[in-house]
Amino acid sequence: MAKKTYVAAIKDALAEEMRRDSTVFLMGEDVRLGVFAGTRGLHAEFGDARVIDTPISELGVAGAGVGAAVTGLRPIVDLMFGTFLYLALDQIVQQAASARYMFGGQAKAPIVYMVQNGGGISAGAHHSQAVHPIFMNVPLLKVVMPSNAADAKGLLKAAIRDDNPVIFLSPLSLTGSRADIPDGDHFVPLGKGEIKRNGRDVTICAAGAMVQKSLLAAEILAKDGIEVEVIDPRTLKPWDEEMVLESVARTGRFVAVDESKPICGAASEWAATVSEKAFSFLKAAPQRVSGKDVASPFSPILESAVIPSVDEVVAAVKRVM
């Protein structure tokens, strides 16, 4: 067990998987120097062929990844920011996600698109969006969003080994966060959530940077005698709905906390699933805590008014009590 930063965990996962499997390679803008440091230093070990600095051509690079994936390689495409995925949307949705199905199972596209997601560091409107619901709505993509460095390592290794296209979203605000990372081949299977805190009164489902906020809210609420269970699905698609439903069956109350927007956001999906499948257990209407439905403003004061806060989570829990 060693304490490491989120980006160090990403780098360890990449290096270990590239050593393990010679078909794994990395490409993207400035992956050699590594803007977020997660890819820094890999070039020294793996060279030009497997650590490829590309032109700033998100669409072309995203699609080239698909071509490489369906012909036997396992590309990791680093597109830097979640918002840059918009430039690559056609290739990710229409080729990466669709290839296997529309060609009747002839192909597989083992590719990982790696980006920073969400806000919290005053990066402004074009670099601070929680883009995950867009990809949750795309059939046959897997969508992963770790909430800490240890999961980041384990989930990235799982994503690289997965034979399907995976969108791997690292919460932007967690880049410098630290966690104890288990030694060795630390692997976290896709699609499995984790109960981060046990509680009998309310179930919170939260992902990415919202997990820590929900845990802080749970501590505050515990002082008032409200015991909150916090679940981190870790993978947003396919997600561990059994874990959440089982928890709601015990608590009878549900709050969904997600940084993305309320309409068709992750919180909406979770709340809808709970309402549909665990209605008979519910003692109150499920509540959502979502990002405000505006663009991401720059000023730290404005940005924190847009991103769900600990206070908002506390208030939502009190509404279901």
Partner: peptide, 15 residues
Amino acid sequence: GGIPMAVGAGLSAKL
């Protein structure tokens, strides 16, 4: 839409 994929297949052959 198919052009990037063809480039990727070429990249794959090279790698």
